[in-house]
Simulated assay, not measured.
Amino acid sequence: MRKVSALLVVFLFFTSSIVPISHAQGTNKKSTEVGTVRVPSSVLNISKENTYPNSSQDMPYLQPSDLAKELLGTSKVKIENPNLIRMLNESAVSKNPLAIGFRATIYLGEWPLNYESMETNVNWEYKKVNMNFFDNRAGKLPYRVRYVQDAQKQVKGGLTARIPNSDDVQKMMILKAAEKTKLPLAFSTIVGVGTKKENGYNVPAKRVGYLNSYTPAVSERGKVTYGEVFLLLHGSKRTIAVKNVTSQGIGAWIPVQDHLSLSFSVHNQPR
């Protein structure tokens, strides 16, 4: 779908010089603001303590080249797909003053063009990854329990439905969600065994204490727009046309990387 036919490439080569283109107890910290999100005090950053080095998923906005800006500016439909912009960045279409009367239409394929975010929320207890437990029913003094990861855990996110060109859609969704929340997002994150924090939570005598740990995730929902993209050449004029435009609703769960939400509770009996 996205490849220009070999015959058309040969023809254009000779005529226009075109290159294909829950809250933990035992802390007095207040919640903090990050982007449009209020981070609860029970959520801890473990990027320094995590024994598994997660690779950064930062996806900065891809700056279009001068040619790409020119072409994008001619489209009646907003184009934000990083992969399509990258292809335009790597393209070259010369303005040949001798190409008067020359016309060509190049089909670039059907693409997800842009993603419009409609709702962004955070589930701070998306997936449980650990539990620290202490039975202090036989004790006479409080016991201080701390978070220690007992096994390596991987938490994956993803789209909530099957959709064409899902990789491109995921890139656009994570860019919008990260921009809104200012949180480090990735579709997969790992908490390494032995990761620990010094934060302590008192288990009173004659009681049982549970310290549960969860990986947060962003729930991102919105609309993706698809269209067939054409490069139009008319003499020295170069434009982009989008045809057969369609839209589809889509959602995704995107884990917050290197963060844990701790929830501490005490009980009279084990649960």
Results as ranks from 00 to 15, higher is better:
residue 63 Q to A: 15
residue 65 S to L: 07
residue 66 D to P: 07
residue 68 A to N: 03
residue 68 A to R: 02
residue 70 E to L: 09
residue 71 L to H: 07
residue 71 L to A: 05
residue 75 S to H: 03
residue 76 K to L: 08
residue 76 K to S: 14
residue 78 K to M: 12
residue 78 K to F: 09
residue 79 I to C: 00
residue 80 E to S: 10
residue 83 N to D: 13
residue 86 R to C: 05
residue 91 S to A: 15
residue 93 V to M: 11
residue 94 S to H: 07
residue 94 S to M: 11
residue 96 N to V: 15
residue 98 L to C: 07
residue 99 A to L: 02
residue 100 I to V: 12
residue 100 I to T: 06
residue 102 F to S: 09
residue 104 A to K: 06
residue 105 T to Q: 14
residue 105 T to V: 13
residue 107 Y to H: 11
residue 108 L to Y: 01
residue 109 G to D: 09
residue 109 G to F: 09
residue 110 E to Y: 06
residue 113 L to H: 05
residue 115 Y to N: 04
residue 115 Y to C: 00
residue 117 S to Q: 09
residue 118 M to K: 15
residue 118 M to V: 13
residue 119 E to Q: 14
residue 121 N to E: 13
residue 122 V to K: 01
residue 122 V to A: 01
residue 124 W to T: 06
residue 125 E to L: 04
residue 126 Y to F: 15
residue 126 Y to K: 03
residue 127 K to N: 12
residue 127 K to R: 15
residue 130 N to C: 04
residue 135 D to G: 04
residue 135 D to L: 02
residue 137 R to K: 10
residue 138 A to C: 09
residue 140 K to A: 12
residue 141 L to R: 10
residue 141 L to V: 11
residue 142 P to D: 10
residue 143 Y to V: 13
residue 145 V to S: 12
residue 147 Y to N: 06
residue 150 D to M: 07
